[in-house]
Design a protein around this nucleic acid. Structure first.
Length: 273
DNA sequence: AAGTTCACCTGATGGC
DNA sequence: TGCCATCAGGTGAACT
């Protein structure tokens, strides 16, 4: 579900719970993503603490607590963090419920591809270093020369390389399709064969499409919503994602769909060479 | 070892 | 109405 713009939107929408105290918490389903369980002491360890800050790291939501612990949330494909009225009754896929001073924060995730973790705040950098993620797609360090280096020697299609979080962090299927279309780059192009000129075009376009989506509150295809329940309106601005057989917005040639790395890939074979 | 494929899980949708 | 196949904003393990 959520790529960088959706996660960023959620983080911003959680502003109201900053400085609120955690009254208590409940976990209804410890087993989420394979190989990742919510720590058994999660509820005990966060009870009575105050939320000091909430930030986004790549597609992760990072919630700092006053006791030097930090909650990590990844939304997977179908996860939501939602702010509800107090005494909210958990729903079928509510896995975590946190009662705060003035709200109840819940984590819903039907497919359970997401992740909720609790770590020591001073180990955050280690935690993410282990994932060997690339720089954030919106960071200044994400520049054409950085991308050039990262694509060095990669014969895999550029579409797949950009989905790889070790190359650049934050992109997902929607925005890679959109950015490659806007940059007129064929998704199957071997990553290392892109020229300096291509990358100088592509990088700003990636940032631009992400920023524009954040302004629209992200893209809601199905499950995604902000923590106040509102959907993302960038879906209305999508140019190629999900547009198979519809006319290309530039040349009217039908948009095609191919599978790359097991993911649907939408593009215009006339515009993207 | 880079490049693929597949599994994880639930729900929605469409064809028959 | 029901049953089956297919597909979905992600990730990482297990293949070649």
């Amino acid at each position: 579900m959520p790529e960088l713009p959706e996660v960023e939107t959620v983080v911003r929408s959680l502003e109201p719970i900053k400085n609120q105290t955690i009254i208590d918490a409940n976990v209804y389903q410890y087993q989420l993503r394979v190989g990742s369980k919510i720590p058994a002491n999660f509820c005990d360890d966060i009870k009575g603490t105050t939320i000091t800050n909430i930030v986004r790291i790549a597609k992760y939501i990072v919630i700092n607590l006053s006791n030097q612990k930090t909650i990590i949330v990844h939304l997977g494909m179908s996860g939501n963090l939602l702010l509800k009225e107090q005494n909210f009754t958990p729903e079928k896929h509510t896995h975590v419920l946190i009662n705060l001073t003035n709200h109840t924060l819940i984590y819903n995730d039907p497919r359970r591809f997401g992740l909720v973790d609790l770590i020591d705040t001073n180990s955050i950098s280690d935690y993410f270093a282990k994932k060997s993620m690339g720089v954030d797609a919106l960071a200044d360090e994400f520049c054409p020369s950085y991308l050039k280096t990262k694509l060095q020697g990669r014969k895999t299609p550029i579409k797949i390389a950009l989905l790889n979080q070790e190359v650049v962090a934050g992109l997902g299927n929607i925005y890679v399709c959109e950015a490659l279309f806007m940059a007129k780059i064929h998704p199957s192009t071997p990553a290392s064969s892109l020229k300096k000129k291509d990358l100088e075009k592509l990088v700003p376009i990636i940032k631009q499409v992400l920023q524009k989506s954040i302004q629209a509150g992200g893209t809601t295809l199905k499950d995604y919503k902000s923590s106040d329940g509102t959907p993302g309106y960038f879906v209305q601005e999508l140019l190629v994602y999900g547009k198979e057989n519809l006319p290309c917005p530039t040349c009217k040639h039908p948009i095609e769909k191919i599978i790359l790395g097991g993911r649907s890939t939408f593009f215009c074979s006339k515009c993207q060479k």
